[in-house]
Write a protein that binds this DNA or RNA. Structure first.
Lengths: 255, 255
DNA sequence: TGACTATCGTTCGTTATCCGAACATACTGT
DNA sequence: ACAGTATGTTCGGATAACGAACGATAGTCA
C-alpha cells in the first residue's frame, strides 16, 4: 500500500510518514491531548502503529507525554510554518511600534525566526539624523542578535541543540560571542529573564534589547526590539527606562 | 537506526516519519519552495529519500509541485493546528462583531473548523427579547452550518473527500441537506461565491449566512456569520443589506 | 474487596516498505 | 557543442515497521 501506479512509473509513497501526519491532524481544540487508543481510533491505525507515531513525535520534541496522554508542544504548533503562526503580525505591530518609537525616539523592530535567522518584518524609524537599527526585510543570524536569542529561547531544547550543531558562528565585532556553550547559556538566560541584550555585537556603538511576543498559547512567535546608540544610553538606562515600555508593547502586540 | 535503547525496552522510532518532518521544517519565508536537491541538502537526506518525502506530501495534498519546485499548500500551513494558525482571532474579532451587531441588531459569530465541526469562538448577542444563533463554545457539525460549509471550502479537495467519507449526515430539520453529493456541491458553491447560506437547516425559523476570514496568505482560517429570523428577514434582504457588511467585518478581522 | 472491563506496554517473527547506487535523461552555462 | 549539474527512474534486498498475542495496569461497579 505504499506504491501508487499512476500510469507509468511506480511512485513510492511513505506509509509511515502518511500515518504520522494523520496522527498530527487529530489534535485540535476538542482534542488537546490523545491516548494511544484515541489516536489509533481517530486515524484508523492499529494501536501499535499509533503508538510508534506518537513516540516518534515525543522523541523529536513535538509532543509531550504525561504517562497516559500525548499533547502538542510548541514545536508541533510551529509546524505549519511562520506564515501560518505569525500571520498578520507585522500589520498589527506596526502602529504600536510606531507609537513607542515616537515616544522614545529610538528605532523599534519586530522579527520572526526563519531558517536560523532573525527576519525583520516590521520597523519604526526614529527621527534622528543618524539612526541605528536593522532595516526592514533584513535577515541576521539568530545567534548574534538580541531578537535571535529571544526567538531561539522559544525553541524546544532539542531544537536548540540541533541549531547549535549546524551553525558556525562568526564574530562581527570584537565583542561578538561565538563559543557554542556561551551562546547556549545566553539563550537560556533569555528564556529565564524574558529579555536579551546585544551590546555592540552586531556593530560597534550599537546596543539592542529584545523581548518575546507570545501567542495565546504562550508560544514565542516573534521578538520586539529597541536599538540605541551606546554613547547615548547606558545598559542600565535601557533596563530601567526602556524595558518596561518594550514589554508593554510586546504584550499589546500578542498574537 | 530506528530503535532507541533507553534503558529497558527497545522503542521503535519511525525513521521515515522523522525524515518527513525534517523536510517539512525546511520550508520558511526564505525558502517558500524547494527542489528535491534543496530538500536533500537541507535535511541531510539522500536525494531519493527527500524525493519520496516530498511526493508523499504532494500525494496527500500538503504541497504542490510545478514540475521543479515543491511549495506548501494551505493544508501544510494548517498542520500546526488551529491553536497556532488562528491564535488571537477571537480577541481581535470581538470588538468588530459587537460593533456590527449593534448596528444591525442581529447576532454575529466567528467560528473555526475543529474536528469536523464549526467551533464558535466569538459571539455578539443582539439585544432582542428572543434571539437566535449559536452560543459561544458550541460545536456544530460542519456539514449543516453556513460557517461549516465556508470552513470546509478552505480545505484541499482531498481533505473534503476524506471528510465526506467519514461523516454520516443527519438532518436536524426537514430542510436539512444530507446527501453527500449535494453537500459537496454546497461546499464548492461556498468556495466559488465566498459565502454560504443555511436556511432553516439547523432550526426552523432560523436562517444564517457566513463568509470566510482569511489570513495574509489567503487561507481560510475562520468564518464570520450572521443569524436572523426567517420571519423577519428574507434571503434576498440578507444578500442585499447584510452581506456587504459582513464581508467588510470579515475583511477587517483578517489574520 | 474482588470480579470484570478497558487500556496499555511489550515482544518478536514476519514481511513488505523503504532504501540508495547506478544509470538515463534533462537542463544550464560557457 | 560540450561539460557540469540536476532530476527521474529502477529494482534487488536489508531491515524498519508491522501487528497479533500476551501479560500488566488502571478504572469501574456491586
Amino acid at each position: 500500500m505504499s506504491s501508487a501506479d499512476g500510469g507509468g512509473a511506480r511512485v513510492e509513497i511513505m506509509g509511515g510518514f502518511a500515518k504520522g501526519l494523520a496522527i498530527i491532524e487529530l489534535f485540535g481544540l476538542e482534542r488537546p491531548r490523545l491516548t494511544v487508543s484515541d489516536a489509533a481510533n481517530g486515524a484508523g491505525l492499529t494501536r501499535a502503529a499509533a503508538r510508534r507515531c506518537l513516540l516518534t513525535l515525543e522523541g523529536l520534541g513535538y509532543v509531550e507525554f504525561d504517562g497516559k496522554y500525548f499533547a502538542p508542544r510548541a514545536r508541533l504548533r510551529r509546524l505549519g510554518g511562520v506564515a501560518a503562526y505569525a500571520t498578520g503580525l507585522a500589520e498589527r505591530a506596526q502602529p504600536l511600534i510606531e507609537q513607542l518609537c515616537e515616544e522614545l525616539n529610538e528605532p523599534i523592530s519586530v522579527a520572526v525566526l526563519d531558517n536560523d535567522a532573525s527576519l525583520f518584518i516590521a520597523r519604526a524609524e526614529a527621527h534622528r539624523i543618524v539612526s541605528t537599527g536593522v532595516r526592514l526585510g533584513a535577515r541576521i543570524p539568530a545567534y548574534c542578535s538580541a531578537t535571535g536569542r529571544v526567538l531561539l529561547s522559544g525553541l524546544e531544547p532539542m531544537e536548540v541543540d540541533q541549531y547549535l550543531g549546524r551553525i558556525k558562528p562568526v564574530a562581527r565585532t570584537p565583542k561578538g560571542v561565538t563559543d557554542l556553550a556561551a551562546l547556549k547559556a545566553l539563550i537560556g538566560q533569555a528564556s529565564m529573564e524574558g529579555v536579551s541584550f546585544s551590546d555592540e555585537e552586531l556593530e560597534l556603538g550599537m546596543r539592542s534589547m529584545a523581548v518575546p511576543i507570545h501567542n495565546v498559547a504562550g508560544d514565542i512567535i516573534a521578538a520586539c526590539s529597541l536599538s540605541t546608540s551606546a554613547s547615548r544610553v547606558t545598559l542600565d538606562e535601557m533596563k530601567r527606562v526602556y524595558l518596561p515600555r518594550l514589554e508593554a508593547v510586546a504584550s499589546a502586540i500578542r498574537g
